[in-house]
Amino acid sequence: MKNKKEFRNWLNGYNSDHPLVIAGPCSAETEDQVIRIAHQLRNSDATVMRAGIWKPRTRPGNFEGVGALGLKWLQRAKNETGMKIAIEVANPYHVELALQHEIDILWIGARSTVSPFIVQEIANACKGIDNPVLIKNPINPDLALWLGAVERFHMAGVNNLGVIHRGFSTFEKTRYRNIPEWQIPIDLQSRFPDLPIFLDPSHIAGRRDLIFDLCQIGLDLNFDGLIIESHYDPDNAWSDAAQQITPDMLIQYLNYLKLRKEIGQDKVYQKGLNKLRTEIDILDNQLIDTLSKRMKISKKIENIKTNENFGILHSERCWKKTIEKIIVEKEQPNLNEEFILRVFEAIHQKPINQHSQEVAI
């Protein structure tokens, strides 16, 4: 992999003063829509316009993009506003057409990243190009698969590379469309600090009211840029209406987001400290979510036992064996036995106390 300075050089041609902002509609719908949004975005800090031309949909019958026709619209938007243009490509033919129409940045979608065969075909088509290529994480939380896609492009002679964190699919119902699983992009940053990383809060959130907070987390984690879906009439967008914001709202968000550089003389030191604090906040939230899930399962067990007229408590012997097994199997240098015992005793006591209160009522 290239060194940090070389990898980040391509960002300087787009925006060197603050994180690079890429914005635009989920889908290019009409020429008027594309041009109108481009002129509105020009008044914001976004320097790159994104738009979906080919839209891979989960099920057939949904709007799958206007296709190559939209490339001419984006080319016109670029000429009129001076903004650079970014689109998703999913096969070598898309790459060929994009380059013919002066598209500046290409990105590889999450559905493509899951297949090394597809990634290799696109990488071969991009061989030696100077255009930046951004690779979204695969839909499943697999860091090796994500990095493997980056390596395939690098081996094909594509030197201007970056990645996009857009969250991961899950069967579990959460507040997000795609769960962030922040530890995966954090691990990527730690292992490859030379690789620019962008946050796609629109696809993580799935709804516009969560986008601002996600952007702030991304900046706190030292992400290099944001890719945000923006439409002048989001409620009537032809795809992913709920997760798009207006250009005016984008301007407002970018004005309120904090870069966390204002405290302390040593910016590198302070930036690193803020990143670690944000990582702790993320882990704390994950810890609370995990404890909540555990309590729900404990409640289901309690209900089953109550219905069958069994006692709700573990036997002392059974509980001790459970704890001993956890201590032996999960031995960690930062967690001593006394601490683990105290944590699990508190967890064990919580449903007991709750049951006692319900019985008393």
Score class of each variant (00 low, 15 high):
Gly264Pro: 01
Ile323Cys: 03
Lys296Asp: 12
Leu99Ala: 04
Phe198Tyr: 07
Thr278Leu: 03
Gly109Ser: 11
Lys325Cys: 15
Gly225Met: 06
Glu31His: 15
Gly109Ile: 02
Ile197Ala: 04
Val158Asp: 02
Met155Val: 09
Ile347Phe: 12
Val95Lys: 01
Pro56Arg: 03
Ala241Gln: 01
Asn353Cys: 12
Lys321Pro: 03
Leu341Gly: 10
Ala346Ser: 15
Gly128Thr: 05
Leu97His: 03
Arg8Asn: 05
Met83Ile: 09
Phe153His: 01
Gly82Ser: 10
Phe339Ile: 14
Glu29His: 11
Glu345His: 13
Asn255Ile: 04
His348Cys: 10
Ile312Lys: 00
Gln286Pro: 06
Met155Lys: 15
Arg317Met: 15
Ile105His: 03
Ile139Phe: 15
Val119Tyr: 01
Glu80Ile: 15
Thr81Gly: 08
Glu151Leu: 03
Asp104Gln: 07
Lys72Val: 08
Glu181Pro: 06
His314Gly: 08
Leu283Trp: 03
Ile164Thr: 11
Gln216Ser: 02
His231Ser: 08
Ser16Gln: 14
Ala205Leu: 02
Phe310Ala: 06
Leu221Met: 01
Ala125Val: 05
Trp107Ala: 11
Gln216Tyr: 02
Lys321Cys: 08
Ala77Thr: 02
Thr246Met: 11
Ser112Arg: 07
Gln120Trp: 08
Leu147Ile: 14
Lys173Val: 14
Asp45Phe: 04
Asn353Arg: 15
Leu99Phe: 03
Arg177Asn: 10
His231Phe: 09
Arg111Lys: 00
Pro19Ile: 03
Thr81Met: 12
Val158Gly: 05
Arg36Gly: 12
Leu106Pro: 01
Asp284Phe: 12
Glu229Lys: 05
Arg36Phe: 11
Ile129Cys: 08
His39Ser: 13
Gln120Ile: 08
Gly167Thr: 05
Met49Val: 10
Glu229Pro: 05
Gln40Thr: 07
Gln354Ile: 13
Lys320Gly: 08
Gln183Leu: 10
Ile280Tyr: 10
Cys215Glu: 03
Gly109Gln: 04
Leu41Asn: 09
Ile217His: 07
Asn159Met: 07
Ser169Asn: 09
Thr246Cys: 00
Gln244Ile: 06
Ser239Thr: 12
His348Arg: 14
Leu313Ser: 13
Ile184Phe: 11
Glu96Trp: 14
Ala144Lys: 11
Ser356His: 11
Val150Ala: 07
Met155Cys: 09
Val343His: 10
Leu214His: 02
Glu31Leu: 13
Ser292Val: 13
Gly61Ser: 05
Arg317Cys: 10
Asp209Thr: 11
Ile352Pro: 09
Ala23Met: 09
Ile37Gln: 06
Ser115Phe: 00
Ser27Phe: 08
Gln244Asp: 01
Arg260His: 15
Glu31Arg: 15
Ala205Met: 12
Trp146Glu: 03
